[in-house]
Design a protein around this nucleic acid. Sequence first.
DNA 1: CGCGAAGTAGGATTGATTCTCAACTGGGAG
DNA 2: CTCCCAGTTGAGAATCAATCCTACTTCGCG
Lengths: 146, 146
Amino acid sequence: MTERHLHSETGTTRGDFRMTPQRAAILEEVRAASEHLTAGEIFERVHRRYPSIAYGTVYRTLHLFAERGLILEFPFGDQASRFDKRVDRHDHVHCTRCGMLTDVDVPTALFARQVAADQTGFDITGHQTVFSGVCPACSTATGLRR
Amino acid sequence: MTERHLHSETGTTRGDFRMTPQRAAILEEVRAASEHLTAGEIFERVHRRYPSIAYGTVYRTLHLFAERGLILEFPFGDQASRFDKRVDRHDHVHCTRCGMLTDVDVPTALFARQVAADQTGFDITGHQTVFSGVCPACSTATGLRR
DNA sequence: CGCGAAGTAGGATTGATTCTCAACTGGGAG
DNA sequence: CTCCCAGTTGAGAATCAATCCTACTTCGCG
């Protein structure tokens, strides 16, 4: 049944896993980044410090961290998944021109989750709102054309 | 189709396209579907009627339609993009187990858009909330509670 | 010291999506 | 009616993200 999750995700990160140099480097890069990085970008950066690191290791580690709540993963689509150092709930604004992704704090209704759960019967565990639009830079740059 | 809006600076062809049999078939399949199909599924179905149709044609057409607002595209990340016949604004619930995608109508704050616009300076044109969770079928199927 | 579990490198592999390009189509101009 | 052209299409190669596989290391523990 559920013994897959023996480790408590609630408390602290136990000695569930080893904090190896590779993992530490990956975590550092994500935290050092000013924006949201894709897995590929993270790989590149870590690779500079650990030229021997493998792509697979980065993915494995990133997912491990995401599972443990050390970082957040956002599976976007038009591009690669991005990872965020912020772990508190927040939403994003996505520029349809340049692809930039920015954080926003929207007092999103928890109530919305309830509505969604009621309508679908799902057991809702999370939600994320993505606003689409054109960032200031892009809109002034070329003038809107739609 | 007699509606033409030829724009001078055509980066992409907007405003004029032929409704070929292939395109009609693709549109029909999307509209006939009870749920959200991936590009691959759409290809399969159309392929039954037009065995000669190419994968590329399906993608090309799907994007064309999405651009013109005939359908909506939802690019996920861990899975394939899905296409929706509904073009009115609505949100989705995504089952993390089986990947099912369901529509929901959440009266999410239009107000949220305003907040997002204020915070980022973006010209917000749309927004979409994705709720993650486990669908009724999956949760009862395995008796797993979370 | 030796075993087993956890972790890693590296490359092969899968899957979705896009791109390239030659052949084709339909409608309007001549 | 015939030719020309922009828009389309088919087929497969090319991309690109993400996962899988396998042998090699390391670490913890008795």
